[in-house]
Amino acid sequence: MINWFAKPTETPVIMDRVLIALALPVAVSAWVFGPMALAHCAVALAAGAGFESVCRFARNRTPWPFADRSVPVTCLLIALAMPPSAPLWLSVVAVGIGVVLAKELYGGLGRNVFNPAMAGYAAVLAAYPQALAHTDATTGATALDALRFRGAMTIDEASGGPAFGVLGGAGFEWVNAAALAGGVYLLLVRVVHWRLPLAVLVGLGLPAAIFHDAGSSASLGSPVFHWFAGASMLAAFFIATDPVTAPRAAGHQWLFGLGVGALVFAIRAAGSHPDGVAFAVLLGNLATPVLDRLRAARSGQAP
């Protein structure tokens, strides 16, 4: 009899549970955005299997992919972060950069220094802004774009537009809600500790609450809007909690989570990219080795 609530320690077991938790956001994304969302997931998984096989073969290992199930997690995170209207080859490029450049070159599982999914997604965000532009005939502008380019409209006027849903961005709010549900599952099966997700959500919500400005035309959106727009919940529960690229000490995890959340808000509010999740996570990853080094220095061990 399997005890589903025992704290898992083996990577394939952990990753299987992460995959179970990701099934809900994938299903909701397919239901909200249609077959293109599923196509992105399928293409990303196929590309991930291919890239991992080639890398394993090149290093004289058994070329059988997905042995530790961390690559499919990376692939699904990229596919979920990708706007469904984006061309499918973008998912392939993002998976290639994430799996090959950001992970396999560093020696594979557990040796990477950047979150592979966000490294791949940030690379295509930077390299192909046109292909990723959120406005097209079928889906229209996303809420994060509409919020920024709304001119003198107040929040209430703008959020009556088609890009906005009940809580956050239209469609994206349900994917975020599903990611939240999947995240709660991960908390229950003790794959994820509550500290990092909470820190990210507080880091994102606090500046949003401070600058909310009672919904005036200068407002940058309420905390609830930011929690349920873009890839916020995925970042909080599935990306910032990556044990390889997040710091180890509890205090440093608070610092990391709050920093990533605040950076997401800063990039959304003032930067030139529509969603800051990928870049905020990479910037957090940059700080992780320094923080872990501080921890090692304090406890008197070699880093």
């Binding site: 450049l101 950001a102 070159l105 560093y106 220094v113 950047f114 490294a119 940030a122 690379a123 930077a126 950076l263 800063a266 990039i267 003032a270 930067g271 030139s272 990219h273 800051g276 990928a278 870049f279 905020a280 990479l282 910037l283 990853n285 940059l286």
Partner: peptide
């Protein structure tokens, strides 16, 4: 690999573009 790492670092900082 250090140069690959610099590339990813530059990518992370690219995200701050436009702030301010």
């Amino acid at each position: 690999l250090a140069l690959v790492t610099v590339g990813f670092m530059a990518l992370a900082f690219h995200g701050l573009r436009g702030i301010g």
